[in-house]
């Protein structure tokens, strides 16, 4: 039983990272009906920016309080990655918005390759290692299950961000505008919504969340590499589809389910089978519910 709870906690932690990254995919898909394949690289960028702030800029020397330092760092990482996200949209996607569905996807693949290589050229191809003790390594033992402080931080940060996003989307005027754009650009424009502005906003929120996820992965595992975005990107993309792409609570649920499924698969069967199990679940769900767990059945616009 201890092992079971241990695996559930493992799964929720990694799942909440997947969910955070998945939100970026799902929001972009929601308003633009395209897959932003460069999102994984924005995640990597978040990890590398946090690395630079800690190692090269020695952030801790300016801000002695660890909690404040982490919050400042998270805000800065989110801001910088969001700027790259907005530039990405402006340069790679906006000029192609009227040219069918395939062109932006190809452009996204190109942007992904470009960003990955840019990261390699700027920071180098070697693994980068975060210094120890940025987050104190405190471990609690609860009923035979070890939980580290960093896991608690990852969980609470992701959940807070997800709840905040949910409130923003469902309860505010901006959120209503985003949902309107997701339904129909032209009608939204007739209602006086600046669609371009909303799309920019989506490319601020998504990359910012992805960047924070990258930073947390860097802080937790302490080892980052320029190709790491692919691994997390593909998992998060799966999570987005699992929950119903375009659906924000769906991405959260999808991420958590994927994380837990992987974790139980690795724990009870074999780690080598982990991905096979996760994708088997994806296939089963898509057979039973082609639009994903929480995806709504929307009639195709003609």
């Amino acid at each position: 039983m201890e092992m079971f709870f241990g695996q559930i906690i493992n799964g929720i932690t990694i799942g909440s990272i997947y969910a955070l990254v998945a939100l970026g995919y799902t929001m972009v898909y929601g308003v633009l009906r395209m897959i932003n394949f460069a999102h994984g690289e924005l995640f990597t960028l978040g990890a590398y920016m946090a690395f630079t702030m800690i190692v090269s800029m020695n952030l801790a020397a300016y801000i002695p309080n660890a909690v404040v330092a982490l919050i400042v760092m998270a805000v800065m990482v989110a801001g910088l990655v969001a700027i790259v996200g907005v530039l990405l949209e402006r340069i790679a996607y906006k000029p192609l918005r009227q040219s069918g569905r395939l062109a932006p996807v190809i452009s996204a693949l190109g942007a992904s390759i470009f960003l990955q290589n840019a990261i390699m050229l700027i920071w180098g191809a070697n693994y980068k290692v975060f210094p120890e003790g940025v987050v104190p390594s405190i471990t609690w033992e609860i009923g035979g299950v070890s939980i580290t402080l960093m896991r608690v931080l990852i969980l609470s940060t992701s959940l807070t961000l997800m709840i905040a996003l949910y409130v923003l989307i469902q309860r505010t005027q901006v959120g209503t505008a985003i949902r309107a754009c997701a339904l129909d650009h032209d009608t939204a424009r007739l209602m006086g919504i600046d669609v371009d502005k909303i799309i920019r906003l989506v490319f601020i929120i998504g990359p910012a969340l992805g960047g924070i996820a990258g930073m947390m992965v860097g802080l937790y595992y302490r080892q980052i590499g320029f190709t790491m975005g692919w691994h997390y990107g593909i998992k998060a993309f799966t999570a987005a589809i699992l929950g119903g792409i375009g659906n924000i609570p769906g991405a959260m649920v999808g991420g958590l389910i994927l994380g837990v499924a992987e974790s139980l698969g690795a724990g009870y069967i074999s780690n080598a089978w982990k991905d096979a199990i996760a994708f088997l679940i994806l296939i089963l769900i898509l057979i039973l519910r082609p639009t994903g767990l929480l995806g709504e059945r929307v009639a195709e616009k003609v």
Binding site: Q7, Y268, N271
Partner: peptide, 20 residues
């Protein structure tokens, strides 16, 4: 006796089982 996946970062599931 088990494998991990190269490029993976989270080994919690494997280690939880190993701990047992």
């Amino acid at each position: 006796f088990d494998a991990i996946v190269p490029g993976e970062r989270e080994f919690g599931p494997t280690l939880t089982r190993l701990k047992n």
